[in-house]
Amino acid sequence: VTAVPLLGYREHNCDDPEAEQVALLAVDHINNHLQQGYKHILNRIDKVKVWPRRPTGEVYELEIDTLETTCHALDPTPLANCSVRQVTQHAVEGDCDFHVLKQDGQFTVLSAKCDSTPDSAEDILKLCPDCPLLTPLNDTRVAQAAEAALTAFNEKNNGAYLQLVEIARAQLVPLPASTYVEFTVAATDCVAKEVTDPAKCNLLADKQYGFCKATVAEKVAREEVEVTCTIFPAQPVVPQPQPGVAGAAAVEPAPAVDPASPVSPPDGQSPSSLVVGPVL
């Protein structure tokens, strides 16, 4: 009787170059499938197991920790140029489990599962007692601040009327009493200064998104709004082939940006010239 060796896994050093290569591919996979929230960056590889696969290849079972960056998922800035969200800004961590197939020298993500968690309030306040904490996005003050900021921006904007897409993060600042909010917007077919009924404005067929940061302070009988918006150049998205493996799951189902043809910025402006603000 020929002894049949058991097909067990082998453990890898988590800082092994190949483990890191697989982890970076996994992080790219996360970011390429995000539609909302912020891009994440690799912080630590927690565990790596490599399983033999019949008839050929190997499957990497990977656990990684990620950190939220300041680049929104719709922001075309390369991840390498994105800053990690600092603890004082109430950092958010991701915990991800991946299965990645290595076959013929090629890596393919088979499955991905991530959970994200903000740092504990206790930890932040120990380090920085005055730092504002993240506020739930369904807080009415947050929604009102985003609406007020976008209205103020549209009133001063010479370009397309912008619609709110998603409130991405918010903090209630104690001193001076104000609401800080970050949100995404999309350009419509209306001119901002001519809009009478926003409900009649439609999103552009080639979706063009933007990202705004605003601080809205409640003053006596008035609001003081400071808002800056950046309109992203439309990005062509090349659909990525995914393996037809039963039970495979992606982090998010759809690409970050609609697979539309590229659109030039209005008036031939460069992307950097589309950064507008602050509007007071």
Partner: peptide, 27 residues
């Protein structure tokens, strides 16, 4: 550490292959 049976294994540092290094900070 693999040694010949007649040779005693010298105590070495315990290698912890995982988890790996923290690149930014741990929360």
């Amino acid at each position: 550490v693999v040694v010949q049976p007649s040779v005693g294994a010298a105590p070495g540092p315990v290698i912890t292959p995982c988890p790996g290094k923290v690149r930014y900070f741990k929360i």
